[in-house]
Design a binder for these strands. Structure first.
Lengths: 347, 347
DNA sequence: GTCATTTTTGCAAACGTTTACAGCAGTTGT
DNA sequence: ACAACTGCTGTAAACGTTTGCAAAAATGAC
């Protein structure tokens, strides 16, 4: 019950109240084994009755630890990162760490400057889908880094097993009867995109499926909308999009043109963000356990702080195909789907 | 160019390099008017060549300021808060403040404990849609608070003008010809819900529209899905949902039942979260400038830190109706819409 | 009861800043 | 030539902790 205007009480106040020295208070709170039980309980009582909270700045000054962790994401508006952040925040809080968050606005320069600014204020940093070069990462102003969504030599990281997810998606489509599928690629530079391409290629080769790569498109709803017509023109009976946002964009534009999903075209997304289950039809997608990813990444970080090793470990997240209603058998020759309406965009 | 293993340089190092005392360095950096220009540039050069960054913990220890701000949201997974956070983060960064973020998981208890934990580590706190009682807020362990999405006596706040948004929505529906509309209410305790009800009632009374209130429902997609059948049964020709998530849920379930929007039922959401424009049909909704809200809230907070006044100011955000394609004229008697399909949930 | 050992405690230094105060040089006014 | 400034700089205290070291107290062995 701290009074409003009152100065926050310091370790000195507690020491006085308990009739001991500040050192004893510090130890009673931080190293319980070193003080007499009776003394300790006296200190604890005094501390709680004064509502004492240690000043973290002072502690940090001497220990060199801040008790803070940082998370940098390319875009706070992107749902993909929300649950990573949520998981990270929860795990950090459980370890009594606070979480700084910052938005690099998808720009490497901004990310570097955030890194620079945060480095001194945190014990460790989680970089989500970093845009930085491996070079820049290696000479970062802080070496307690964990990466999410990208693998760089020498830096611990947490990555989804995109290749396996891709394999699951392709297999699913193959079982449904599809023999020509298209991949709607994301940004060239993106590590995830490269992984997904590799997985696609391997899976298609194995199953004898004809694959084509469209794009790259902007990894957004708008990117999907723009890509919808080319996708249709490609002749593929199924398309796997770089991510859910793109898939939803494609679905949206297709719906506006009167092209039915999945009757005319099957559609698979990536990530399983919330919106994937909200569309009509709900999207079949490769789920990435993002919240768990956040938790695990923070765990790796905390481990690294404690032991100081784990330099190059990499945690690979299992992905799983969530089959909803945007995939089905390919259209049959005998029962052609109706002609699409004219493009609503040009009207 | 700091080397990797090197100790970060301190103000002492800079002082030695520039041949001055630490006090001069401190002043050269913090109070430029107090030192000779020549000295100052010597210091600046030394500082930059050493890559000097002041230790914020040490500074904070003496000034009592941390340079950090906190944002607490009920749910990091809720898109409504993402752009608030984004705006807040951007504005804070522009003022050289870092942002802590935490998730109260919609629980007042958790929120209080976060408040307690953060109070000492930040200069000010932004509480989004706080679940705390006015009492609890008044005796918070920190008095540099700003509220978003709620108005409490004595606490500065930023709130959307929901009542006006509601008026715009109702007017829009009235112009289209609707005379019976339903409001699908959100959580009873929610301040926003109360505002929206008031606005609805006023607007309907003025325009002579019959209104009914359904719910309350959970302010989520699932809540909307569950409410869809009752909405249909209510006999209203248009429904305004507590928020977009609920509206999208309703639309989703309606689509699955074969009920056409807006031909059979017009649908209006609230907030204009990204998903509102991604559905088919895109959702007509009352837009709340959430990113601006975050910016403004932080500005209020920074103001408060500087001057120390602005105790009870309240900033009201203008809302604006975004007309998309989920609203249209009510169905006519002469052209009844087809019978809805059986509920897909019960099959 | 004494000594050696262990447990418990206190003193004081350190962490990296900011800032009140004092001092020192140069300038101006008489 | 002296006083009173002004402008710039340095010294040292303070912020609230943690922790090495030494002192004190308690315990055990004889």
């Amino acid at each position: 019950m701290t009074l409003l205007g009152a100065q926050p009480s310091t370790i000195k106040d507690v020491a006085r109240a308990a009739g001991v020295s500040v050192a004893t208070v510090s130890r009673a709170l931080g190293a319980p084994g070193m003080v007499h039980d009776a003394t300790r309980s006296r200190v604890l009582e005094a501390a709680s009755s004064l509502g004492y909270r240690p000043n973290r700045a002072a502690r940090s000054l001497i220990t060199g630890r801040t008790g803070n962790l940082g998370v940098i994401v390319p875009d706070l508006g992107n749902p993909y990162f929300h649950s990573v952040l949520k998981g990270a925040q929860a795990r950090a809080r459980a370890a009594d760490h606070a979480v700084f968050v910052a938005d690099s606005e998808e720009q490497a320069g901004e990310e570097a400057s955030l890194l620079e600014a945060m480095a001194r204020q945190v014990d460790g940093l989680l970089l989500c889908s970093s845009r930085l070069t491996a070079r820049a990462l290696a000479r970062a102003p802080i070496d307690r880094l964990v990466l999410f969504g990208r693998r760089v030599h020498g830096v611990p990281s947490v990555v989804p097993d995109s290749a396996d997810g891709m394999r699951q998606a392709v297999t699913h489509l193959h079982v449904l009867g599809h023999r020509r599928i298209a991949y709607l690629a994301g940004p060239r530079r993106s590590w995830s995109d490269q992984q997904r391409r590799k997985g696609l290629e391997a899976a298609c080769r194995e199953l004898g499926i004809v694959q084509s790569v469209l794009g790259p498109v902007s990894p957004t709803f708008a990117g999907g909308v723009e890509a919808a017509d080319p996708v249709l023109a490609s002749g593929a009976t199924a398309v796997i999009a770089y991510n859910d946002l793109v898939a939803v964009g494609v679905a949206h534009h297709l719906a506006a043109r009167g092209v039915r999903v999945p009757e005319r075209l099957s559609l698979v997304g990536f990530d399983d963000i919330p919106v994937a289950s909200m569309t009509t039809p709900p999207l079949t997608t490769v789920a990435v356990p993002t919240e768990a990813a956040g938790r695990i990444a923070i765990e790796l970080l905390l481990d690294r702080l404690g032991r100081g090793d784990t330099a190059g470990s990499c945690f690979e997240l299992p992905t799983s195909l969530v089959v909803r209603q945007s995939t089905g058998p390919p259209p049959t020759r005998s029962q052609p789907s109706p002609e699409p309406r004219p493009n609503p965009r040009s009207s």
